[in-house]
């Protein structure tokens, strides 16, 4: 296998610290989003304590936003749970893809790291793993940093209420998308391995979105079709 980890996988304070440093610039992308979630949470009548609990325990912005859009009186328990599953099911294969690191962890280091895993932490850890990185603390460092700033931004949005309302289409919202476009760069392993799988993923996702499919379908269809093509091409070459 080409991506076998050389040497033992470790989990050190140094790795966590490096994850924290890597994550700090990502806050530019998550902060505006957190403010919006906080503002909407306030509009829907959630108290600051309820808002903080949701951010801290759920820690998945898109699903929080979707649940709040569906919010009603009394709280829509089933709809909120379904919103969380639909939006967050994309994270299920991420942990499996990080198995080369996670397999070497036990107990709270393993299941605690999973609790803080978000898209950015996964993408940067996958890139780090491919570079031969062996310190799984990196994943937790990124996750915990984003979690801290996520809570701060959501609570700030809730406090500021309607005063910070950014108009739809404000350039600051582009920061979230720009983050993921930038993260693609370190994930790229060259034309031979990645060109066709990535192209297929992007094209299918756009077509699914144009066809009117809501989340998470464009993402799941594109991601799995692209990854399946990449795997097929790789195994055929062997």
């Amino acid at each position: 296998m080409t991506e076998e980890i050389k040497g033992p996988v470790v989990f050190t304070r140094h790795g966590v610290a490096r994850g924290i440093r890597t994550a700090l610039p990502l806050v530019i992308g998550t902060f505006p989003f957190g403010l919006v979630v906080g503002v909407i949470s306030d509009q829907k009548g959630l108290s600051w304590l309820e808002t903080l609990l949701m951010s801290a325990l759920v820690f998945a912005g898109s699903s929080q936003l979707l649940a709040l859009e569906l919010w009603s009186e009394p709280a829509p328990i089933l709809a909120a749970i379904i919103a969380a599953i639909v939006v967050n099911i994309r994270m299920a294969p991420m942990g499996a893809a990080l198995a080369p690191w996670l397999d070497k962890l036990r107990g709270v280091k393993l299941w605690g790291s999973m609790a803080f895993m978000v898209d950015h932490a996964f993408a940067l850890s996958a890139a780090e793993q491919r570079r031969g990185g062996r310190d799984a603390g990196y994943l937790l460092g990124i996750g915990v940093t984003l979690w801290c700033f996520w809570n701060i931004s959501v609570i700030l949005g809730h406090i500021l209420g309607s005063t910070v309302r950014l108009p739809a289409g404000h350039p600051l919202y582009f920061a979230a998308i720009a983050t993921f476009v930038a993260i693609l760069v370190p994930l790229w392993r060259g034309v031979r391995r990645d060109f066709w799988p990535w192209l297929l993923a992007g094209v299918l996702a756009v077509l699914a979105w144009k066809a009117g499919l809501g989340p998470p379908w464009p993402l799941l269809i594109g991601a799995f079709a692209g990854a399946a093509l990449g795997a097929w091409l790789e195994l055929r070459r062997e």
Binding site: V181, L184, L220
Partner: peptide, 10 residues
Amino acid sequence: HLPGPIFMAY
């Protein structure tokens, strides 16, 4: 192979 395609599809 999943990481790249996930973020392309996103």
